[in-house]
């Protein structure tokens, strides 16, 4: 890990993404969902930022907006100091080599009508990084690097198992030497034993190449295992962000506490420990509660939590949380 003094590799500043909500017979725009609401964070070189939250919290939208698969509604996305948030699709093509993504579903994230070699080689061809013969060589190298057999590279995706397909996705992302890979629930669809090997692979690749990860997941244990720093999202906002050990050992936001407490621990001896049980469901992101979004489920909420939006502030050194009461 070589953190350069030149500033963070990726700096997200007050990023927001609103989706129109359509309703009625005429499908008119009747409202907006703040899928991502004023989100800021940084990722350094060789670092993994874990982005954790429950379904609908906007964590995947953050990833896709950074890649400009969704146009951001506001805020800046600075890659290597350059703001790419206003880049045209043509300008984006120039920087896409640096930003890669690995999706959740190993079945639908690979084009079923292309061979594994073509899939992994495609980014190389797009960015003109290798001539035809070199490309095969490079693809073979990638196959070996992610633990696939190069002699299987002319097979089609359906001929591989789920874990192997996820390795193909990783090889595709890795082929162009990206600076950052966005891993969007990349291990969530895999069986435990396969998941372990893909997590090990990602960590090993980071040690070898110094690539950074934005690791998006709902699984607290996986996030803790893989991340240097962790950001917790709830209904479009970051509620807590800090070094991994700080978030997991001394969570400051009541939501983080509840999230940690809800994780079932694979040890029957700890079974009867006291849990913080949140009541109710995650509110609809179309109509989030006013003030602190979490106040409807928060065990310690007070009157002002229902009115004022808490700012994300440094509560302990290097430990930011958005809570009035901490």
């Amino acid at each position: 890990m070589n953190t350069l003094a030149s500033g963070p590799l990726l700096k997200i500043d007050r990023l927001s993404k609103r989706f129109p909500v359509r309703g009625g017979v005429l499908r008119r725009v009747v409202g907006k969902v703040n899928a991502v609401d004023d989100v800021s964070f940084e990722i350094n070189r060789g670092e993994t930022l874990g982005l954790v939250g429950e379904s609908g919290c906007g964590k995947s939208t953050v990833g896709k907006t950074i890649l400009k698969l969704h146009e951001p509604s506001g805020g800046a996305i600075c890659l290597d100091g350059k703001d790419i948030s206003q880049y045209s699709p043509r300008q984006m093509r120039g920087v896409r080599r640096k930003l890669q993504i690995v999706f959740q579903d190993p079945y639908s994230s690979l084009n079923p009508r292309m061979t594994a070699a073509d899939i992994v080689g495609e980014p190389l061809a797009i960015h003109g990084l290798a001539h035809r013969r070199d490309q095969r060589q490079r693809v073979a190298e990638m196959f070996e690097r992610v633990g696939l057999r190069p002699d299987q590279m002319d097979r089609f995706p359906h001929e591989f198992s789920g874990g192997q397909r996820q390795r193909i996705s990783i090889a595709r992302a890795l082929a162009v030497d990206p600076e950052i890979i966005i891993a969007d629930e990349s291990v969530s669809a895999l069986d435990v034993s396969i998941q372990a090997s893909v997590i090990n692979l990602l960590i090993r690749l980071q040690q070898q190449t110094g690539v950074s990860f934005l690791f998006i997941s709902h699984d607290m244990s996986v996030i803790e295992h893989i991340s240097h720093r962790v950001a917790v999202m709830y209904l479009g906002r970051i509620v807590e962000i800090a070094e991994r050990s700080k978030v997991f050992a001394h969570p400051l936001h009541p939501y983080t506490e509840a999230l940690l407490s809800a994780v079932p621990v694979p040890d029957p001896a700890t079974r009867r420990k006291k849990r913080i049980l949140l009541s109710g469901d995650v509110p609809s992101p179309i109509k989030p509660p006013p003030g602190c979004h979490f106040h409807t489920r928060c065990p310690i909420a007070e009157a002002r939590c229902r009115i004022d939006v808490p700012a994300l502030r440094e509560i302990a050194p290097g430990h930011m949380a958005a809570c009035h009461l901490r």
Binding site: L69, R93, R96, L99, I101, F103, S109, I126, R172
Partner: peptide
């Protein structure tokens, strides 16, 4: 809307 298409866009395909 399938991820493989998004992946191709993200890879910079024209």
């Amino acid at each position: 809307n399938r991820p493989y298409f998004e992946a191709a866009v993200a890879a910079g395909a024209g």
